[in-house]
Structures are given as C-alpha cells and as structure tokens.
Simulated assay, not measured.
Amino acid sequence: MPEVHLSAGSVEYQDTGGEGPVVVLLHGVAMNGSLWRHVVASLRRDFRCVVPTLPLGGHRTPMKVGADLSVAGVAQLVAEFLDTLDLRDTTLVLNDWGGAQALVALGRDERIGRLVITSCEAFDNYPPGLPGANLYASAKLPGGIAAAFGLLKLRPLRRLPMTWGRMSKRPVPREVMDDWFAPLWASKEIRGDLRKYVLGVPPKATLLDWAEQLRTFDRPALVVWAAEDKVMPPEHGRKLAGLLPRGRLVEIPDSYTLIPEDQPARLAELIRSFLTADDAAS
C-alpha cells in the first residue's frame, strides 16, 4: 500500500482512485483499513475511497518517538492526512473510533463536507464498554497489552464479552483478525503506540464539551447505529443525530458495533444514498 509521511510518522492507506467524490473511511482500535473491505468493494465504482490505517495498534510501522497519539493527537493526524493528500469536500466515515467530535471541536473539520458516523465512541464512552474497560486496565499494567493480545491468539477467547464478542454479532474471519493483531503480537513499539492512545483520553468534561461542539457542524451528517449495540449505547446515536444541525439517524438491526462486518451491504447502500441525495440537493 502507499504511505504518506506525516509529522507523527508514516501512515499506510488504500486509495481506489478515480474522479468520483472522495470518501475517507476510518477504523477503530486494533484494526486496520481492511475493516472496510466489503463497503469499499461496493462503493469504489462510483466513489474514490481512501482508507488509512490509523496508529491504533493495527499499523505496521511504529510512530515517531514522542508522537502525540492521544485522542486529540490522532484527530490532528487525520486532519493532517487530509491536508497532505489535499482531499477536499471529503465525506468522512467513522466506525468504532469516535474522532469526529474531536475534529470539530479542535477546528480541524475544514476539509470535511459530510459526516457519516457509525456506531462509535461518543460523549464520554472512552474507552468504550466492557472491551474498552478491559483494554484500559491492561494498558495500565507493565506488559499488559502484550498479555491481553497474546491471549487472542486463541480463537475461542476472541468471542468473550470483554474482548471482541460484543464488537461483532458474527465472528470476524480468522485471517482478517490475525492480520489486525499481527503488529501488536510482533512489535513492542506498536504496543506502545496503542498504549498511548488508550491512556490518552481527556477528562470527562472535555469529552462532553467536544460532543457539544458538534452543534457547529452545519453540513450534512448521517448517523448509522447498530440497534443491538452492546458497546456503543444506541441512545448515543440518537443524541448525536440530535446535536448535528443537519443530522439524520438510521438504526440497523442484526448488528453490533462493527457494522462494516455485520451489515456491510446495508451500510454501503446507506452511504451511497446519502451521498447521492446530497449531490442532488446541492
């Protein structure tokens, strides 16, 4: 994959190319851009899909020593990514990672023309739910992240409620999950990058203020939430749609947090119709 050199380090990304509207798709912790493989396959004919692998544990090249990988730091990194590739009027699509509220609050949303927020961290749900609490506890212990992800080499442990069992209703294919976890298994530096993020959550008051700043995002926004989500509360989706001045909510049945895994066809259909309706109205 190509990579772009940013102030914090190198970021790999997939770019389908083409002249269609730009859609940038972002993933969450301990994953990479392959989370979006089915959605991209559906959209790439008509849209330019750009899928970076964020430094959240699934990345293969460690970030620079001293890089800010807090929640705010990763949001700034996303903004720098858009700047460096000169992506304009971008449709930013997020799942699991809740960086939209930070991007808007920090005033780094100038290249974002539309938002699609799918089941993700929101308000003060950082790190989210039982899996997030388990990861946070591991990050606070010396060698904790190595131990936590070492256990995930055993496939049955991946479906426990405190690991990945509440993230997707159906098991993520073994080879995909192995690819997500391989950098964490192999590299102390990658584990250190993830630890910075997990422990780099701002105070609750800051998180709630960031969420309130979504009221200033006056462009089209679609909130897509898993109706059965056990990690990202469905009421958060409803509240986000209410905060966004041009927000609209769709709840998807038969899915947990990782909608791109559980319901990729339905999610791709919603993204396509959202962009098509927005283009027709503009």
Rank of each mutant, 00 (worst) to 15 (best):
Q263I: 00
G66N: 15
A72Q: 10
D209P: 07
I145T: 01
N95C: 10
Y13V: 06
K239G: 11
P2S: 08
L199Y: 15
L207H: 01
P128R: 03
L184W: 03
W185G: 03
T118V: 05
I145Q: 00
R158C: 06
R111A: 10
A139Y: 07
V116L: 02
S119H: 04
D96H: 15
G33R: 09
P52Q: 03
R219Y: 05
G247K: 02
P260F: 00
A265W: 01
L207Y: 01
L249M: 15
N32T: 14
V104P: 06
R88V: 14
G242S: 09
C49Y: 00
A139F: 09
P264G: 03
G98S: 09
D109K: 04
G33L: 03
A122T: 07
G165K: 09
R174D: 12
W185H: 15
V176L: 11
W185N: 06
P52W: 02
E212Y: 11
V23H: 00
H236W: 15
W225G: 01
G17M: 10
A30C: 08
L106A: 08
L54N: 01
P245V: 15
K64V: 07
R174Q: 10
P55K: 13
P156G: 06
E12R: 07
P245C: 11
V29H: 01
D68T: 09
Q14L: 13
V29Q: 02
L154F: 11
V22N: 00
K230H: 14
L54A: 05
V23M: 00
I190L: 03
T53F: 01
E3W: 05
V24A: 02
D68N: 11
K64E: 08
G18M: 05
V65H: 07
C49A: 04
E80M: 06
L214A: 04
R238L: 08
V224Q: 01
G28H: 03
K188H: 09
L207V: 02
K204I: 10
G9F: 06
V29I: 15
S282P: 02
D229E: 12
R159H: 11
R191P: 02
I117A: 05
A241C: 07
G132E: 12
K196G: 07
A72E: 12
R45G: 13
S34H: 14
L151S: 10
G99C: 05
E19P: 04
L154Q: 13
D179E: 15
E235Y: 14
D262S: 00
S7K: 06
A227K: 15
D89S: 14
P233K: 14
P264R: 03
T257Y: 08
